[in-house]
Amino acid sequence: MSIPVQNPYHLLTYAWDQLYEADEVAVTAEPADSLLDLLARVLVQGTTHVLKRGLARDYVPEVALTGRLRSKLPLSESIRQQTLLTARGWCAFDELRHDVSVNRLLKSTLHYLLTA
């Protein structure tokens, strides 16, 4: 008696409390012959869903020398480097970016699979 490949996938989504993810990926649409076929289908459909929804974004802390004052001003650094004489100063701020760990993981996985 053989166990269908989709069963461990549904068990894992249940164990990791990710049942909503199981509904987004149609693993029962076509029968998968092997685990690799199933994982490839999950990766393709999951990536398609993420790209339609939009990539994750998060605030990344930055420190930059700028002519526009934003957020926190580390004055000690600006005074030490005498940047205030040139109407510039160091600012510490949070920038909303797509360059977050989840997106980097997805990108590196897809790059590895394409080049392997």
Rank of each mutant, 00 (worst) to 15 (best):
L75D: 12
E77N: 07
V100T: 12
T28W: 00
Y14L: 04
R97V: 15
L110D: 04
A40V: 13
W90A: 01
N7V: 14
L51Q: 02
V63K: 01
V63S: 01
Y112P: 10
A64P: 07
T86K: 00
L113I: 11
M1G: 12
A116G: 15
E24Y: 02
G46Y: 02
Q45L: 00
Q45W: 02
V100K: 06
V42I: 09
R80N: 15
V60N: 04
S34E: 04
I3A: 07
I79F: 09
A29M: 01
H98Q: 11
A116K: 05
L110A: 06
L73Q: 05
L38C: 07
P61D: 06
L36I: 12
T83A: 03
D37C: 09
Q45S: 10
L84I: 06
N7C: 05
P74T: 04
Q18C: 13
V63G: 04
T48N: 04
W90Y: 14
G46V: 00
R70W: 08
E21P: 06
L35W: 10
K72E: 14
W16A: 09
S2V: 09
I79K: 05
L39F: 14
Y59W: 01
H10P: 00
T115W: 03
Y14G: 11
L55M: 01
D23Y: 07
R80V: 15
